[in-house]
Design a protein around this nucleic acid. Sequence first.
DNA 1: GTTTCAGTTGCAAATCGTTTGCAATTGACT
DNA 2: AGTCAATTGCAAACGATTTGCAACTGAAAC
Lengths: 157, 157
Amino acid sequence: MKACAHKHPHQRQEMSALTDRLRGHSRKITGPRAAILEILRQHPHPLTNKEILAALPKGQCDLATIYRSMHLLEKTGMVKRFHFGDGASRFELVGEGDDGHHHHLVCTKCAEVVEIDDCFPTEVEQRIAAANGFKAVTHRLEFFGICPECQQTLRLK
Amino acid sequence: MKACAHKHPHQRQEMSALTDRLRGHSRKITGPRAAILEILRQHPHPLTNKEILAALPKGQCDLATIYRSMHLLEKTGMVKRFHFGDGASRFELVGEGDDGHHHHLVCTKCAEVVEIDDCFPTEVEQRIAAANGFKAVTHRLEFFGICPECQQTLRLK
DNA sequence: GTTTCAGTTGCAAATCGTTTGCAATTGACT
DNA sequence: AGTCAATTGCAAACGATTTGCAACTGAAAC
């Protein structure tokens, strides 16, 4: 059940594939964009825009540009936006042809993130949609708890 | 399955019960707090702080006070905070003894909110927690789609 | 009922994530 | 190489939320 055999959003993608995808949307491959994509490639985890900025060679790119790039990448389906309940959006690269839908388990102490392969049961979601007359229903789902290390740390205090 | 028989967070609570709960936490029952609780009582829906402010007789209470009150009420378990993915927190009164855990179905066009009684399967959540060594695992889950009215509206365009 | 004081409040300023206007810059095509 | 729309950096603007501080007010004690 804890499968990992299916297409995983975290398989590292070729840089050329990424730029091709952008070109496919008739967008320029600029220095900042290439740099951002490279960071996303290297960090198979949801990243905030600030984290992306920090990971970038300093002065490489303005924070505003990162925000604009993430909007673009989101619109073209190349990244997916996640919310962990603190104010900030986090982004992950999405595999080509994938919709990037998945969930996370987040440590509420240290913010460690584990990717989760389980999902909310489709049949139940469809029943919920139907019962309320809603169409095009999806969901956001994130798990929160205390990771093994933080359990340790807490015990010591 | 689509049960509605269990304790529902939306059963309107007595004002006196609410103030008693606050007193139980050795907090003062002030004008602003009583007014906020009254609004929450009257609106069995997740409300943003701004919506609470708007619902309040004008000048009744400062926005900062609402923020502070919601923190207090959250800490004492009297309200539960929800995130719908736009920047703002939303709050709902929680029944006494209840933990307020539940989910919503939100229209992405008009923001209509329907309360949902289904929940993520406990066994699966426990398995996820165990598989990753996490303790005290919960989840946030919200559904998004297009409500019947907005489907209508979209069709007309 | 008055006193008393910690708990509360309003107001303004500060913070944080995010967006936007604008002039300068630059990919990509001719 | 030349052209032009797309893109960027910078600074200002924004919306949600937090906070410092002096004034104020419940509620317990007198």
